[in-house]
């Protein structure tokens, strides 16, 4: 938990949108994200509609792939963090690292990559791997993949670009580093051809973790999303993750644990505030990821009714303290002053 005792709040946006609306898709999503930004939320998580993932058939599918949507949303917002899901099956690690590095420069240090540790059913069959991966291979491959992406994100030092026009030195060659990765699944020389992130590296959000993935997450993640569970188990679970993070030689506050919460249509909003307060004060997590129902208007209820309650109880900050996603999350490298 932060010493400031303020919780972190994210909202998740899913591919299916149930609201009947004549408004084009992107304007509606802009309205949603700008509302979340005006409310001061840490970040919006953009799910990616995996093929055959079984979204509600009644919903109209969102016509956008998540990383392209993130780029567009970055130009109509200025403070809120924007995190896109992107599959390790659908992208080569070099391409994915490059896409997110570029997104982070477009958004001035507000981007993050949400990697799922669970193989989407049937997905590999659309990427020339009809047999898919065994769970063990998928885990080892994911770990190697994440290491490559994070390594590529660090290929250029923050002060590598000189722009020395008269001296003819655009960058300092000593401050550009090859990755030279050779592993079981990939070999990648590097470096990226995108400059260093304004927030050091894009934020890595890991989700859909099994027990066996926890150590990988402890080594690599900035944010871990965990499913909701009985309250008395969450403190133990949170402590376990912090122990693992410390065991990897990292500061336990370098990883933020957020619990997924799905407000149901009939859940009393005051009860929701109570529930979030209880888990947070019991040191069960660092904050919450609110899984928005398919109706975009559900955000209005959360922002207008639950947030003021949380703020009144001193559980959520009034304003953004910095400009990068890392600064919102209280992570190092965020350029916080």
């Amino acid at each position: 938990m932060d010493s400031g005792a303020t919780m972190h709040l994210a909202v998740s946006l899913f591919p299916g949108i149930a609201d009947p609306s004549p408004e084009p898709g992107f304007s509606r999503l802009t309205g949603f994200v700008q509302k979340a930004e005006a409310a001061g939320l840490d970040m919006v998580l953009l799910a990616d509609s995996a093929p055959a993932s079984g979204g509600g058939a009644a919903n109209s599918p969102m016509p956008f792939e998540a990383t392209t949507l993130l780029a567009a949303l970055a130009t109509v917002t200025s403070r809120i963090g924007l995190v896109a899901a992107a599959s390790t099956v659908a992208h080569q690690p070099y391409n994915l690292a490059r896409r997110f590095a570029s997104l982070d420069i477009i958004g001035h240090g507000r981007s993050g990559w949400n990697a799922t540790m669970t193989q989407a059913p049937r997905e590999a069959a659309n990427f020339s791997r009809p047999e898919g991966f065994s769970p063990d291979d998928f885990r080892r491959r994911s770990e190697e993949y994440i290491g490559i992406v994070q390594g590529l994100w660090r290929g250029w030092d923050a002060d590598a670009l000189l722009f020395d026009q008269s001296g003819g030195r655009f960058h300092d060659p000593e401050k550009m580093h090859l990755l030279d990765h050779k592993g079981g699944f990939f070999s990648v020389r590097g470096p990226l051809n995108v400059a260093r992130s304004p927030q050091d590296t894009p934020v890595l959000v890991l989700s859909d973790l099994s027990e066996a993935d926890l150590d990988i997450a402890a080594r690599t993640a900035d944010v871990i999303l965990l499913d909701d569970g009985p309250l008395d188990g969450t403190t133990e679970r949170y402590d376990d993750i912090r122990r693992r993070v410390t065991g990897c030689g990292r500061d336990p506050d370098a990883v933020k644990v957020l619990t997924n919460v799905a407000p149901t249509a009939n859940s009393k909003l005051a009860a929701l505030a109570d529930r979030l307060e209880k888990e947070f004060r019991a040191r069960g997590c660092d904050g919450f990821n609110i899984l928005m129902p398919a109706q975009l208007s559900a955000l209005d209820d959360f922002v207008d009714l639950v947030l003021p309650e949380l703020r009144q109880r001193g559980l959520f900050r009034e304003n953004y303290r910095g400009t990068t996603l890392r600064s919102h999350l209280g992570l190092a490298g965020g350029g916080d002053r």
């Binding site: 990383t67 392209t68 949507l69 993130l70 780029a71 567009a72 970055a74 130009t75 490059r98 896409r99 590095a101 570029s102 997104l103 420069i105 477009i106 250029w156 670009l161 655009f170 960058h171 550009m176 051809n193 995108v194 400059a195």
Partner: peptide, 12 residues
């Protein structure tokens, strides 16, 4: 040696 990745650039 450095620049935007074009899909993200054009999406913006």
């Amino acid at each position: 040696s450095i620049g935007f990745e074009p899909i993200s650039l054009l999406s913006a």
